[in-house]
């Protein structure tokens, strides 16, 4: 039973996470060697119940890791729309970027996660942002041949103008 708070969060062990936090609430913001918090681990592995518990206990969703990874980008990359929505309701920056020039929208497109793309666009994701390698969300969808994503992006652009 010596799993770290990060492993417990990732493995969805919500009761054990609650017990650890009751003994040491500072674990909420404990960053591992790469700067990842328990909230980031839970978001990356789609553990919505743990995400809810950590936020309820006061975890800061705006913390970014060493390469500027965030709970939102990890949830977007993993395709966890329910976690994306709860994080956005907490006021995280929908356009947070990391050192790869990645944004939640670009990771959602890369993962072909249609519902995540829709949820991010609905909360103001910037469709013009490009990755370091110069790909916008649309260029990425076209290059990857993700037709549904392309359609969602086109419809969004039409709504904008």
């Amino acid at each position: 039973d010596s799993l770290s708070i990060h492993q417990l969060a990732a493995q969805g062990e919500v009761l054990q996470v609650a017990v650890r936090l009751s003994k040491d609430v500072s674990l909420l913001s404990k960053q591992d060697e790469r700067g990842f918090t328990p909230l980031m681990w839970a978001s990356a592995f789609g553990e919505k119940t743990v995400v809810d518990l950590l936020l309820e206990k006061g975890a800061d969703p705006k913390i970014v890791a060493r390469d500027r990874e965030s709970a939102l980008t990890l949830a977007s990359s993993g395709g966890y729309v329910d976690i994306i929505e709860v994080l956005l309701r907490r006021g995280v920056d929908v356009n947070v970027y990391d050192w790869n020039g990645g944004t939640p929208l670009l990771y959602a497109v890369r993962g072909n996660h249609v519902k995540c793309v829709e949820a991010l666009l609905a909360k103001g994701a910037d469709i013009t942002t490009e990755s370091d390698s110069g790909y916008s969300a649309m260029a990425l969808a076209v290059a990857l041949g993700y037709k549904k994503i392309q359609k969602v992006l086109e419809d969004h652009i039409l709504r904008l103008y």
Partner: peptide, 21 residues
């Protein structure tokens, strides 16, 4: 009990395998 450990989360390279723009 056997402890199974999850690997640390990581983000993919967004444009891996795509031509440079």
């Amino acid at each position: 009990s056997h402890l199974s450990l999850y690997t640390s989360p990581s983000l993919p390279n967004i444009t891996l395998g795509l031509p440079a723009t």
